[in-house]
Design a protein around this nucleic acid. Structure first.
Lengths: 197, 197
DNA sequence: ACCAAATGTTAGTCACCATTAACGTCATCG
DNA sequence: CGATGACGTTAATGGTGACTAACATTTGGT
């Protein structure tokens, strides 16, 4: 109804990506089971079963979406962690990665931490693994900053910080991104210091 | 299959509450559309359409659930705000209310900020209103602590703090509640100070 | 121009699910 | 007792939605 039938040339280009993006937006808004194949097709200008030319099914679409998100996050974290000067700088860089992702792709973040339960088993394990590795990247850095703190506490604090940073989809529109990002960074920094300091 | 058929006397007592509790757990785990009436009935030992003796339908059940949650939160906030000595104490009390609710009823918190979109219109508006009033309770207190800070920033910071506090369902089992609660309080306090200070 | 792969379309099919109907049971209260 | 209402049960019913089948159309390589 709104988008999609722009240029007929673009259609051939990256339908897959277009579908994934539209599906993410819809899943974030109404939940996996609240969105039909027809809805997703309609959002990109094709209708219904055309999606089966690009994906094995609705489950496969979700699996690929979450796998992509968790891969990207983890990869960014690894890059940042290896290229860093010290734990303080690494933590700042990790925060920036997560904040950038959350503010630039709110729908992906929303889907990422709501819909894992709907991913069928082969992929679910892998996504969980990537998520765990991502968390461990944070925990490692935090442990360097405060070796005496038990790992369980560091992990819990990390999840709390994710909750803080991933709140952007909920407060969309309240504040401009240019104001939101440094505020989130400062809040997260202070929260971490309070948790493990 | 698991619970429910304990005492036949308890059955007559509070079926409604039992149903609401089971439904909350299921909705939190699989999402509103991922749970069938049959599932909910089965979870309390009756099967399927028996629920219609207690609720007008699946939508009505969700509406009542969210209305109850937002009412309880707002009422607690009002109580705390009127009985308080000063803004600092009020803020501490508000934090304790939210932390207690989030750690004691993780399923309710999860449903509360995921499923509003599935509530039909008469109730949706009312729930939104209660949620807005709850947020305003926080914003009012924060404004007293820092009058120069623009309201939009206070609102965004409040949402971020909710994200932090409501992260408990995600980090369930990492840390004992007795350790988790003061840590969340300290993190939230520090995050607020960093945001508006 | 011709073939094959890619990409769509529309019309089934089949399962699931919310809701209703029609029909018991049992306790309470007159 | 006997009726009434609370609470359940098992069969429809009707709609929706994922997926498949059968049938175009386009397109790029030869």
């Amino acid at each position: 109804m709104t988008t999609a039938s722009d240029t007929p040339t673009r259609s051939r280009r990256n339908r897959r990506a277009e579908i994934l993006e539209a599906a993410a937006r819809l899943f974030a808004a109404r939940g996996f089971h609240g969105v039909s194949i027809e809805d997703i097709g309609g959002a990109v200008g094709v209708s219904g079963p055309a999606l089966y030319r690009h994906f094995d099914g609705k489950d496969a679409l979700l699996s690929e979406m979450l796998l992509d998100i968790s891969s990207r996050l983890r990869e960014s974290a690894v890059t940042v962690a290896t290229a860093a000067a010290g734990p303080e700088e690494t933590l700042d860089a990790l925060l920036d990665v997560q904040i950038a992702f959350a503010t630039e792709h709110p729908a992906l973040i929303t889907v990422h931490d709501r819909e894992l339960g709907n991913v069928p088993e082969p992929a679910r394990r892998q996504i969980r693994r990537l998520q765990r590795l991502y968390v461990e990247e944070w925990v490692t850095v935090l442990a360097e900053l405060h070796p005496a703190c038990p790992a369980a506490r560091l992990r819990a604090a990390t999840h709390a910080v994710f909750g803080l940073l991933n709140s952007t989809p909920h407060s969309a529109g309240e504040l401009a991104a240019q104001d939101m990002r440094p505020m989130l960074h400062a809040m997260a920094r202070a929260a971490i210091a309070a948790a493990i300091g």
